[in-house]
Design a protein around this nucleic acid. Structure first.
Lengths: 242, 242
DNA sequence: GAGTGGTCTAGACCACCAC
DNA sequence: TGGTGGTCTAGACCACTCA
């Protein structure tokens, strides 16, 4: 009789969506604790187990971090543990050296159509283009070209980037309120051109990994396009298939 | 007073371990249903919820597949859904064509020390080496070198490989009782040598992705080493970072 | 309709952490 | 010692599948 098919959505998914909205709105900031499971249960008028299931999923998606005995916290790129969470490059000998960062330049430019589309920008909006090197023991390993929507990253410049210590995603989080949640990468093998070869200290034509990364913030909104050229003579991109 | 620190292990993890042993021993075969949650709860003398949590984890690890209303089944590579689960290569235009397989050769040889170690073999045991191409629309895309422990894959030969339809991992499952659970990949950019160039239809020196995959079966036992040379002129390796 | 997995509850107790 | 997340239980009802 009923004309409308009822959309079945479990309670815990509705609560998960509500929690996601709170994160997205900035009600709870990266690093802060969210209310306890019991408090949320009372607030949403459900049992603790239902809240728990919602939080469980957000924790496996790396939006929240649970700490037994202390509480549940909004995930952040500021912690040692989660630094370089998105960088899959590893030394062949397994050693985990610290990476140095060297800024090359930072400027604003017109986006090409394809990039504007990928980032969900109007063609009239400018993009910030950052170029930088990652080095290990003073040897260049990665050349990054980073593209960001100009309006969202108003005020981003070379000075800010140089003064900041720690990963770039931490700067984005603290200065611009943009937190990277997940990313998609497309990987290809390419030959180094003259510029890339010079910056990475290899001969022209050397095979490089080209890693094109599109990063998303809350609500699956794309906010960064990054082209990384990786040397793989003493390093490799590691991946786990499950 | 007690001299021994008690090792705390939640019930559901003990049950998960027990279920894993049953899978490993072949008590339940790929594609078959395992007992229902209630039956297992009675068997292990715990509540249904505890069994559920153990099965939940095995399902997220792709060892089991839950189907509402039907039961819980042992995962298999035989299904359409899970074919090429480990192949991350995608056409740039997003089209999902069917891949053709072309066997090049299959022979037994002495493993080099490094390979014997990776596969956990004695140096005296031989390895089976399979070379094959993957093609899309008659154009070569991937050149695979596949190395398998000789004793585990006794009887594997070119005829068997040629007669078999479907993915290789399905053959391994049905003929040799070896099911691939997960894999680790190391990815590099290399220049095509003469042989690779000829087989893949590119000029010598063309940058190729070298994807070195180590696959594991139950109990984290390595059982396959695979070196794949991927063309990435019209394809890319896709990855999701979370 | 019988049987399966999926959701939800209410309450108990345990492990861990900070004060 | 009190509060947090982590485990476990027993039971209810819902959604889905298949005979």
């Amino acid at each position: 009789m009923s004309a409308v098919a009822p959309v079945f959505s479990p309670l815990y998914l509705q609560i998960k969506a509500q929690l996601t909205r709170s994160l997205q709105s900035g009600q709870w900031k990266p690093g802060e604790a969210i209310p306890s499971e019991m408090e949320l249960a009372v607030l949403f008028k459900v049992s603790q187990g239902t809240v728990r299931k919602a939080i469980d999923e957000l924790a496996t998606e790396n939006l929240l971090v649970r700490r037994q005995g202390r509480g549940t916290f909004v995930a952040t790129h500021a912690e040692e543990r989660t630094q370089y969470r998105f960088l899959r490059l590893t030394a062949d000998d397994g050693q985990a050296h610290r990476l140095q960062r060297r800024l090359l330049d930072c400027r604003r430019e017109r986006p090409v159509a394809e990039m504007a589309r990928a980032l969900g920008m109007k063609a009239s909006e400018s993009v910030v283009r950052v170029r930088r090197l990652l080095l290990q023991l003073d040897e260049p390993v990665v050349l990054d070209h980073i593209y960001l929507p100009g309006l969202m990253f108003k005020g981003l410049n070379a000075e800010l980037l140089n003064d900041h210590v720690g990963p770039m995603y931490r700067l984005f989080e603290s200065e611009f309120g943009v937190r990277m949640i997940r990313a998609e990468e497309k990987i290809r093998a390419v030959a180094a051109d003259a510029t890339q070869a010079q910056l990475l200290g290899v001969v022209v034509g050397t095979p490089l990994l080209l890693v094109e990364r599109l990063s998303f913030t809350y609500g699956d909104r794309p906010v960064e396009l990054r082209r990384g050229y990786y040397r793989t003579d003493q390093y490799h991109y590691r991946n786990e298939l499950m």
